[in-house]
């Protein structure tokens, strides 16, 4: 099998210089002819195993690419797409948190009945701990731990209440806008939360929320703010 030095080094997870030196010193079963590395795949794999080195050799080097790019997973998951998936609910009825939760959770189509009950319970548990009302009439209810079994893709459900309810917020103001954050993983959750709180720093944006009726207006706004944030960061 012939591969370029670069690819061999990558598949062995070693610096290129090290592989080159090992070939020269004869410590690795690879021969070099011109600029190509020649080796027997099985022998090299055995050798790597014997020396506790990882060896992800593949015939077509391109296949390894996606493996390496696992990390930015939560990055491309921006707020906008989660919001689009969650949708906007307006004129949500109810006088207390639990009623609102039941109403909203009941409108998530992907969830089974059991999961819905579990989710509501977790949301309430989280509220008991400390209120998720973050002030300015906004709350971000979410379960304490992610629910990967129930949710495969992150959701942000935006709710505008028919009338403000008491939410024990930090500034004691009644809450009229809720963002439900449901995410499959902690990192995803943190990412969404940080992006959302960045948007909510904008007072003008918050004040428009209460009168929100059209979801496209919301999405446009969010897109604008997110672009600003990304451009800067």
């Amino acid at each position: 099998m012939k591969l370029e030095l670069k690819e061999v080094a990558k598949s062995l997870d070693l610096p290129q210089g090290t592989v080159e030196r090992w070939i020269r010193q004869g410590r690795i079963p690879i021969q070099k002819r011109n600029d190509l590395c020649m080796f027997n795949k099985a022998v090299l794999k055995k050798w790597a195993k014997m020396h506790n080195l990882s060896c992800n050799l593949s015939e077509t080097p391109d296949q390894t690419e996606p493996d390496d790019d696992q990390v930015p997973d939560d990055d491309n998951d921006n707020l906008l797409s989660s919001m689009k998936r969650g949708g906007l609910l307006v004129d949500v009825p109810g006088n207390d948190a639990e009623f609102v939760f039941r109403y909203v959770v009941g409108r998530i189509p992907e969830l089974s009945t059991e999961n819905k009950d579990a989710l509501i319970e977790r949301l309430l548990q989280r509220e008991e701990l400390v209120s998720t009302g973050i002030g300015k009439g906004v709350a971000v209810p979410h379960p304490r731990s992610p629910m990967p079994e129930a949710i495969s893709e992150s959701l942000v459900i935006t709710c505008v209440l028919a009338h403000p309810i008491d939410f024990k917020s930090i500034d004691d103001q009644p809450v009229s806008v809720l963002f439900f954050l449901l995410s499959p993983s902690i990192s995803c959750h943190l990412n969404l939360l940080s992006r959302l709180s960045f948007c909510l720093r904008d007072n003008a944006f918050v004040s428009t929320l209460k009168a929100l009726r059209d979801k496209h207006v919301l999405f446009e706004k969010i897109e604008l703010i997110e672009k600003q944030a990304d451009g800067k960061g």
Binding site: P15, T18, W22, I28, N52, L53
Partner: peptide, 14 residues
């Protein structure tokens, strides 16, 4: 990390 790999490769006999 590298030291261990190097030591393993150097000391093992194939």
């Amino acid at each position: 990390d590298q030291y261990r790999k190097e030591l393993m490769v150097q000391t093992s006999d194939t």
